[in-house]
Amino acid sequence: MTQAAVAERLGITSVKAHRLISRALAEGVVKITIEGDIVECVELENELRTRFALDFCMVAPDLDEEGQPFRALGTAGANYLRRQIEGGAHQVIGLGHGSTLAAVVQQMARMNVADVRFVSLLGGVTPDYSVNPHDVMHTIAEKTGARAHFLPVPFFANSVEDREVLLAQRGVHDILDLANKSTLKIVGIGTVGSSATLAISRMVEPREIKAIQADGGIGEMLGYFFDKHGRVLQTALTARTLSVSFGAHGSDQIVAIAGGKEKQDAIHAVLQSRRLRGLITDEATAKALLAR
């Protein structure tokens, strides 16, 4: 039914019907989806798979969003994650954090999940111990009813010695072991610069970001930094990173969800590494990547 028809049936104004539907969407009570593939996006997916040796690719259609395409990426990512849960192929699914993954989980419909566990792939405690607005573990647990394991350590330890102390804690060791065993890892891709989430959240000091840039750092994934050729850089942060171990090329099933103009260089750098098995991105970003 159209919004006008809903309003007439309920005996309310169209404006109020619109507000109620918007509220229901925001709270996850209802979902509006369109089934079916868009030919142009399918063609982009095929080209990206071939160009970057991907097993899987999904291109979300352009929704004419200003800034980062969180709605497009969130909807596409939520649909993918739902299908993976319902498919039953993965008993443990690892999740990163960040604004894009937060949008994915926000877009997910509520479902009852009994035989899947979620685990954080990297430390999520902020330097000042405030709430991490981009952590997804609590929300995914609330949306699915599944067990979700949070990694209660910072993304980067203050020192190598601090990292060893944290890793020696039984709970931390167990969660990281579970994360390493996750058969599907869904991650975001970060930029390297003053506007990067790592810099804004102060998980990384500005001087450290500048040093990584000076070394040729373009993109970041799971706390590892990549240059434009896809090579993993050995930085001052490498020995202090508290995240899942990085397997050999293609040994992990890592699917990245990322897009937007400001992330195109970072996404391309990570794709060049050939460490991704899958990519979910937006239409404009897909075209830009293929135009290089």
Rank of each mutant, 00 (worst) to 15 (best):
E43V: 14
Y80A: 09
G67P: 06
L101A: 02
T144D: 02
V119D: 09
V15T: 12
V15M: 09
E66Y: 02
R51I: 13
H97E: 12
Y129P: 01
R147C: 01
F56N: 09
A89F: 09
V30G: 07
S120M: 04
A5H: 06
D128S: 12
C57V: 13
Q84K: 15
A5R: 09
A114V: 05
G74Y: 08
D37Q: 15
V113R: 04
E66S: 10
K16E: 12
Q68V: 00
V116W: 08
R49H: 07
V104P: 02
E8D: 13
A78Q: 09
F70C: 00
L54F: 10
S120R: 00
F56D: 11
I32F: 13
A5Q: 13
A5T: 06
A17I: 04
N46K: 15
K31L: 01
G94Y: 01
E43M: 14
D135A: 15
E142Q: 08
A17R: 11
T33C: 04
E45Q: 14
A103Y: 06
E27V: 01
A76R: 00
V6F: 10
I12W: 05
S22A: 10
L121E: 08
G36A: 10
V30L: 14
F150I: 14
F118V: 09
A89I: 01
V30W: 11
D62A: 00
H97N: 12
G77V: 03
A53T: 10
A4F: 00
H90R: 11
T50G: 11
I93Q: 01
H138S: 07
G74L: 14
V116F: 05
T100G: 04
V42P: 07
F70W: 06
I34A: 15
I140S: 02
L10W: 08
A7N: 05
V125L: 15
L95C: 10
V59G: 02
E86P: 02
Q91T: 13
R147A: 06
L48Y: 09
V39I: 12
F150L: 08
L25V: 03
A17D: 00
R110L: 00
R147D: 06
I38P: 00
G11F: 01
E45M: 10
V42C: 09
F118C: 02
E142D: 05
G124W: 02
V92E: 03
G87N: 14
T144C: 04
A102E: 11
A7G: 01
H138A: 08
G11W: 02
L101P: 05
T50F: 11
A141P: 01
G67E: 05
E86C: 10
R23V: 03
R110W: 00
H149Y: 12
I12V: 11
A102D: 11
V15G: 09
T139P: 00
D135Q: 13
R147F: 05
H138L: 07
R51G: 10
G67S: 03
S130T: 14
Q3Y: 03
V59N: 01
I34Y: 03
L81F: 07
R19F: 04
V113T: 06
R23L: 05
G88A: 11
F56E: 12
Q107M: 12
G123H: 08
L122P: 05
L73S: 01
G28Q: 05
M137A: 10
R9P: 00
I32L: 13
A26T: 12
M108P: 04
I34E: 14
E86I: 13
V6L: 15
K143Q: 03
A76Y: 01
R51D: 10
V136W: 06
V42I: 14
L121R: 04
L122D: 11
C57P: 04
I38R: 06
L20W: 03
E27M: 06
